[in-house]
């Protein structure tokens, strides 16, 4: 029955197989399966649209992985798949050896996920938001009060913690959203554009925070389109364009591979290479 309905309603891209079978543009390093985050051959399509194609990378504990790409490159889709909000069309994702598709609760307990649009409930205060997530993550009652106070102090939420979220500035919301992802002390932090729409000072505050969390042993993965940011804090970088991972490695790796002097030039060179290939 489902199969019939699927045939009637689902539109499968006939070219999908060709896409998937194409070799990656840059040879990827072998995947270390003991890492906190392991993504292998991840492909995701929405109807006719191929959002992510054959993505593989790992993030060991205690390191920061920066996912760089233009708008619409597939960053958000990739990160949502890590959190189990999106199911892979093919390929696998493992967070601390658990699969977000089959064990969403185990994965979500281990994961702090910061959504791209920092959507917070407007009529609820930051303090109440933190309490809500502490309760939903089943943080023991004895611990939750002290954890909330600690996060308020560390992320400097004190000035607005009892005001409704709808009255907060973008930077204040961003800090609240990050405090929310940290409330259950997750082993893996996934942040979708945590510095978007922030000024330099506010962005720097967030990035320093990510560095600190990595030093505390968390595996951190974040996406951005600011190349300077990844350069600043990332241990490894993945360059993503049109759903494909073009290159992966440390900043030095990428500079060496492309023969460029700055990361921006390297990024543009990688993107240009795909254009040439498309035309050819």
């Amino acid at each position: 029955m489902t199969r019939i309905i699927n045939k009637l309603w689902g539109r499968v891209n006939p070219d999908l197989d060709d896409f998937v079978s194409k070799p990656p543009y840059v040879k990827l390093p072998p995947v270390d399966s003991s890492s906190a985050v392991v993504v292998q051959h991840l492909t995701k399509s929405y109807g006719d649209v191929l959002a992510v194609c054959d993505l593989s990378f790992t993030v060991p504990a205690g390191t920061i992985y920066g996912l760089v790409g233009a708008n619409g490159a597939g960053k958000t889709t990739t990160l949502r798949t890590l959190a189990g909000l999106s199911k892979p069309t093919s390929g696998t994702v493992r967070i601390l050896d658990a699969d977000p598709t089959t064990d969403p609760l185990i994965v979500k307990r281990a994961l702090g996920f910061h959504t791209g649009d920092t959507a917070l409930w407007g009529r609820i205060t930051p303090r109440e938001t933190l309490q809500l997530f502490a309760d939903l993550c089943e943080v023991p009652v004895a611990e939750s009060a002290s954890r909330i106070e600690a996060l308020i102090a560390e992320l400097e939420l004190g000035a607005f913690v009892d005001r409704r979220c709808e009255t907060l500035s973008t930077g204040q919301r961003q800090r609240t959203a990050i405090a929310r992802t940290l409330i259950h002390d997750p082993a893996v932090l996934v942040l979708d554009e945590p510095t978007a729409a922030l000024d330099v000072v506010a962005a720097r505050f967030i990035l320093d925070r990510l560095r600190l969390e990595a030093q505390r042993g968390k595996a951190v993965i974040f996406s951005t389109h600011h190349l300077s940011e990844v350069e600043l804090v990332s241990d490894r970088i993945g360059v993503i364009h049109a759903g494909r991972l073009l290159a992966e490695g440390t900043v030095d790796d990428l500079l060496e591979r492309t023969g460029k002097r700055s990361l921006t030039e390297a990024f543009l060179a990688l993107v240009d290479a795909t254009r040439v290939e498309d035309v050819a």
Binding site: K108, R109, T115, D117, A119, W121, G122, C137
Partner: peptide, 14 residues
């Protein structure tokens, strides 16, 4: 519409 549903879904809830 406000995007808060995704925020809620990131919590370990069924």
């Amino acid at each position: 519409e406000r995007g808060t549903l995704v925020t809620l879904l990131t919590a370990p809830v069924r």
